[in-house]
Design a protein around this nucleic acid. Structure first.
Lengths: 213, 213, 213, 213
DNA sequence: CATGAATGAGATTTCATTCAT
DNA sequence: GATGAATGAAATCTCATTCAT
């Protein structure tokens, strides 16, 4: 997902990148269906046919964009080491760190983020499958994580899958409002993350640790 | 949004309803862009031109569907009387009731629900505005509601808009998983609603009422 | 072509007349092809189907309008008695009379006149034939008339058909400018008619009569 | 308006020309409204979409045709040098020349001429404005010309605008009969032009020059 | 006579993709 | 690799006309 136009990139890679960047702009401005390949190539300044030297087609380019986004998202939220989390305090620290990192990454990629949440599901069934698969993975991961937290006494017993689902929802909607619609902009990332964590960790019985922290 | 084909409906209303129902099927199966007006009219068994006696066009029909859905959603979640809520217990009762009602309503309208969450934002900018406007309204309402709960000592002090946003997110994702993707189906509506409420009401200090209930 | 809504007319005739009048308005405003039957019936306040009780269709109605107009035109210009014309002075008197009468009649029917000259030829081949036939008749009549004038020594020898053609052209263009486009409106009908006659009768050798008159 | 398929024309220009020529045929045969783009492309042997690489649409193509025609017409009749006309004889010479040139040009473009007079006004209001504007220009030019002739003692005093209008009418109708309907075909162009001039210059008092010539 | 809902043929136009240069 | 002209499939929508009530 990195967009830097490093001189180390080959001519081919640079052009590939340029087309993707242009596509992001156009998709963001007009939406996938209203966006025309002709607009994308015009923005980059290459011929219509050139487009097909770099992508199989409009849809495949879109899929590539979404796939990049999912990878970026997953790699950002999935880089922690659960085994090190042994106290409520460490948990909060870790979650805060992930939350702030994610905020930063998504703010750096506002337009793809917007594209993803706005219409990634309305383009092609194949793409929906990829997205669905990623969600399943994320949910499974979070569910497992919740179970671990429970075993370590960090959260109460409950439906862990449900908790994972709700958590994903909270985060998604906050992203959409904050990153895509620019509401919630008076709230600091730290504040947002704190609220998310508080409601994620609701219903815990670990009163002691809570009062101590 | 009611779909019953009551004999009280005029001939015109019945046909209007039939076309909408067929459209829901087709949009659900193929998605907005792949759906053809010809498929819709064929399913109802009327001529192509008849469609345009009832709708200005494919897009306006879609907008009508989404508008209906939003109205249904809002009217379902917005029918409570905040003034009667004076205790944690009543609050839970009310929320549970709304949650169960919403579950029922959305299960009755699975396909429109799926259409809404899958691609309502990827059709037309005008429609996006309507949707956005509805979200703003919903968020404002919930924010106010949260503020009232706080004043009555039912929740802690916090960023009420943020809480509203997260709540909407939790609910949305749970809807999508449960109603649209048929995951979480081993969870009873009651369990789901309980979890949602628990995490919505997280961070409360009202320990007393809590232990009593 | 008479438009008066006399009480002597039967209900049927009144409605027929009303539809024609409405059609004239609509055709004038939008042109034949852009005019819709629905607009015509709406203006009269009858149902769509009623239209077809009075006319075979849109095209036949148009043809009726044009046919009426041609009849009106021909009957206006063709009512003289050539045998009585035995001097240049009488000729001028007769021509003046016809000219003024025609002006009056066409001013009373501005919109049909405009419709006729603007698009009567662009509707249907059958109609073109009728129009063509009328022109042929008119030209033949005028040609004969010219020949008679020549025999009586009122005009010089020349190509009488050509003279007839030019005369029709002069008159037509003057009509279009004066009646349809409202240019030439500072010129009195009398002046217009005088000019037409002068150039129609050009090349005459009848100097004597000329100087006497 | 030139139709020659010169090898100097670019590939693009040749195809543009070919499409226009085919369109002229089709419009001539069926009329604007009955003419189908599919017929035009079929005649040229290109794909349907190709048409839209060269024209914005059927209507714009028609407008281009009419615009070409008007330009051709105006450039043919407007190329004289009024200052050189100092005698009735020179005037006749000049008018004859223009008349013969126009006849030639229009005979070379019979079908567009027919299309123009048959239905150019029945296609689109925008086009009507262009046509009207051209007529106004032509009439103003002729009116000025008449005034000059009068000042030089070549024609009598009269309503010059009216004379211009009548002249345009004579010419038009003669064109329609001769070029479009193939009547008057036993008359030589020279004869036609002579008659037109005679009636155009009617009412002159310049007897001397007349008898001399 | 009157109604007006329903019909359905079919033309225009778009644009992703191809391929000869 | 690059070009960009050409392709052509296919879907929307219109509106004169019909006909059952």
């Amino acid at each position: 997902m990195s967009k830097e136009d490093s001189p180390r990139m080959s001519r081919r890679d640079r052009r590939h990148r340029a087309l993707k960047d242009a596509a992001i702009e156009i998709f963001f401005e007009h939406g996938y269906h209203a966006a025309k390949v002709s607009q994308i190539v015009k923005r980059v300044g290459v011929a219509q046919g050139t487009f097909y030297l770099y992508f199989e087609g409009k849809q495949q380019l879109f899929a590539e964009l979404i796939s990049d986004f999912l990878e970026l998202f997953v790699s950002t939220v999935a880089e922690w080491e659960p085994e090190e989390i042994d106290s409520r305090r460490v948990l909060r620290q870790e979650l805060t760190e992930v939350g702030l990192k994610l905020t930063e990454v998504l703010l750096d990629n506002k337009k793809v983020t917007a594209i993803f949440f706005r219409e990634s599901q309305a383009v092609a069934p194949e793409l929906n499958e990829l997205i669905r698969h990623t969600y399943e993975m994320l949910l499974a991961m979070l569910t497992d994580f919740n179970r671990i937290l429970y075993k370590r006494g960090l959260i109460a017993d409950m439906n862990f899958r449900l908790l994972a689902t709700m958590t994903v929802g909270m985060v998604e909607r906050v992203i959409v409002e904050r990153i895509v619609h620019d509401t919630l902009d008076e709230a600091e990332p730290q504040e947002i993350v704190d609220h998310l964590i508080m409601h994620y960790l609701a219903g815990t019985t670990d009163i002691v640790d809570e009062t101590l922290s």
